[in-house]
Amino acid sequence: MRYLKLIQIFYKNCLLVDLEYRANFLINSVMSVFWASFAILGIKILFLQRDHIGDWSYYEVLLVIGLFQLFTGVMEGVLRPNVTQIVEQIRLGTMDFLLTKPVSSQFLASMRYVRVWHLVDVAVGVGICGYALYRLQVQVSVWQALLFLLLLCSATVLLYSLWLLMVTTAFWFVRIDNITHLFSAIFDAGRFPVTIYPGWVQGVLLFVIPVGFITTVPAAAALGRLSLGYAVLSFVMAAVMFVASYFFWRFAVRHYSSASS
C-alpha cells in the first residue's frame, strides 16, 4: 500500500514536470504516429508479394505490430527514463542517497520516473490492436480475453526484468547505452511473429532474449491459437526472470562501493 501511494506521488510529480513541456506532447504524438505508419508500410510491402507470412494473415501481423508499439511505449515511457537516471547516479556516486532511503532500492531505482508523453505510443498500440481485432472479427471468449490480459501482464513483468538485468550491469560497466541499444535492435525482431524465423533464431527469441513472449504469444492468445503449454511457459519465464533480476540487483548493490571511495 505504501508503495502504491509512493508511485502515485512520483507519477504526479513527473506529470507536473511534463506539463511544463507541452510542445513535447505534439512532437511525441507525431513521431509515434509516424513510427506506427512506418511499421505498417513495412509489412504492406511484404503483403504485396504474398497474402500470408508463415501462417499469419495481414491483420494478424498487424495485431503483433500493435503489441510491439504498445510495449515500445512501456519501454520508452516507464523503463528507459529510470535507466538513464540510475546510470547517471552510479556514475556520479549519488546512488548512496537512494540506498539509504527506507524503501526498497530496486523499487526506487526502477519506478521513480515516468515520461508521460511517451505513453502516446501505448495508446497508438492499443488502437492498432483494436483495429486489427475488429477487422479479424475474432470471437473472443471470456477465458481467452482473460488469458490475453494475463499474458500482457506477464509480458510487462518480463520486459521490466530484462531492463533491470541490463541496468544492473551498469554497476560494473558504468556506461550501458551500447547494451540498451543492442537490446532495442534485437527487440525489433518482435515486429514480426517469431514463427517466421528459422528454428534456432526462434529459440533465441523465446529463451535467450524472450521477445517472442512479449509480442507473439499474447497475439496468438487473442487469436485463439496458443497452446496452453506456451501460456504456462510465458508465466514461468516472467517469474524466473523477475526473481533472477531481483537477486542480481541485490547482489550488485551489496558489491557497490560508491564512486571515488
Partner: peptide
C-alpha cells in the same frame, strides 16, 4: 572498439528482413 563492435551488432534490421523474405 568494443562500443563500435556493439554498434555493428546492433545492425540487426537487414538480418531480420532477410529472415522474413526467406520465409516468404
Amino acid at each position: 572498439r568494443v562500443g563500435t563492435l556493439v554498434w555493428m551488432l546492433s545492425n540487426t534490421l537487414p538480418l531480420i528482413m532477410l529472415a522474413v523474405w526467406l520465409s516468404l
